[in-house]
Design a protein around this nucleic acid. Sequence first.
DNA 1: TACAAGCGCGAACAGCGTTCACTCACCAGC
DNA 2: GCTGGTGAGTGAACGCTGTTCGCGCTTGTA
Lengths: 272, 272
Amino acid sequence: MDSAEGGGGAAVRGRRARARERTWRELRAAALQEVREVGPAGLALRSVARRLGMSPAGLYRYVDSRDGLLTALIADSYEDLADHLEVALGTAVDALPPRERPDPSVAVIAGEAAGVAARVVAVGLAYREWSVSHPNEFGLLFGDPIPGYAAPAGGPTVDAMQRMGLALARPFLEAVAVGALHLDAVLRTPEVLGPPEAFDPMLPEGVDRALGPFLLLAWGRLHGQVSLEVFGHHNWLFPDGCAALLRADLERTLHDLGLVPSTATGGAEVTG
Amino acid sequence: MDSAEGGGGAAVRGRRARARERTWRELRAAALQEVREVGPAGLALRSVARRLGMSPAGLYRYVDSRDGLLTALIADSYEDLADHLEVALGTAVDALPPRERPDPSVAVIAGEAAGVAARVVAVGLAYREWSVSHPNEFGLLFGDPIPGYAAPAGGPTVDAMQRMGLALARPFLEAVAVGALHLDAVLRTPEVLGPPEAFDPMLPEGVDRALGPFLLLAWGRLHGQVSLEVFGHHNWLFPDGCAALLRADLERTLHDLGLVPSTATGGAEVTG
DNA sequence: TACAAGCGCGAACAGCGTTCACTCACCAGC
DNA sequence: GCTGGTGAGTGAACGCTGTTCGCGCTTGTA
């Protein structure tokens, strides 16, 4: 019970705590592997236990329930996705081996519209690429929600999710900071803006509040294409066209904003 | 086995065949109710059997497997969604009791840009409304796909899905027919258009092939907003803003196309 | 050295999807 | 009108699942 999220909250004091942490890490890795192979719905605790050479009951020292394990995996997957996005943005370049680093032509030229546009395209294509190459984890994050579960506000799930969201939003935040992005009146109605503090948990202080709904809108456009592709609704006619279609959508959206895309968008192949 | 999709394919000859058809209908209704209450992942054949006062094994006279039942429900749900969209478009008005009929101000003014725009908004909001009010069925259609299942080309799943897609596309097809919609060059690259026959199963003959990717793009934009809302990723900041946000997105997209929305978009409340 | 805490185990329970042999009511042909 | 075949529905069973419980055994602390 107290080990709700499993992890060794304590310091790395004893050998025991270290062993616990290691086991917990292996458990998540095994479970994630299982999810990769059979999907979130097919995840079986007993199978994970077998993988670890452990008894099924033993897992309950680390996990509250099957759903608890799934939420831990959700947090991990959000982190993984956030990592990929940050790599595509050049934020976390140093953390990677050289051959996986993004094309420097898309790296930070913050302040210039073309640079911002290229970064929007890069992060959008990275979002797609991670999703297409991790379909079951994508389903874990964005498919049927775990019934009855609501992520606790301070929990690791929400933290990781916000980190991912921040990576997605970063190019737009930069664009706003340098005045390259002008939000029109469509998003300024009270129905869309909500109460003044509505987007406080999402936006830094001092940023135009209309950026909140705008970011949700942009995320929705991106996510829709990706979701339909990953779940097999977009690609039954023409499987290979989805990436190009998404790029076209991103460019349309950018054009819609007055931000012209740079031609150097090769950074999308980063994680390939 | 032979009863793969369960239904009574035979004519209504004997009393027996009629009974079978009735049971099959009740089975699907009970299962759909179960899905509404516990979600697709929670659907239990034994529970459905209990609901029908039947033995679990008896269900296998009508269904191949649990997944087979789910796919039957998928087809039914697509039909239901298609019905709602057609109602919102005024196509199937006569089939409904008067108080559920759409605002006539959005009904067919085909050929006029404002009318087309209003119809796009109406069908988009209807898509959202059905999804929000049928979250578990939405999950069934667009959440994690049934692992290992691919809908057979001639099957009822694909048929129903195409009917739904056609309803979504109708306003755009009309717009093209009357020359109110001009697709720009962004969607005309070979990567997006694919081979010449790529969109043949989707588009009527003689229609500009660039409409194919365009429709996927529009569906993706719409679907993304709805999917994020229904699965709880959009509305944690500001739960009531999603409808307005979607409307804003639709209007942005329309503006992007040079189609100005009419002010009489109240048809969205149709199914409420 | 004594004690508490925590890890892991085996057994068990209830529920699940699915199969199998079986009964019984219906329907067609003599 | 009787009869044989067909098909709906049953009950028991198998193997799987998530989860709980009480037990030993190891570890860390006083």
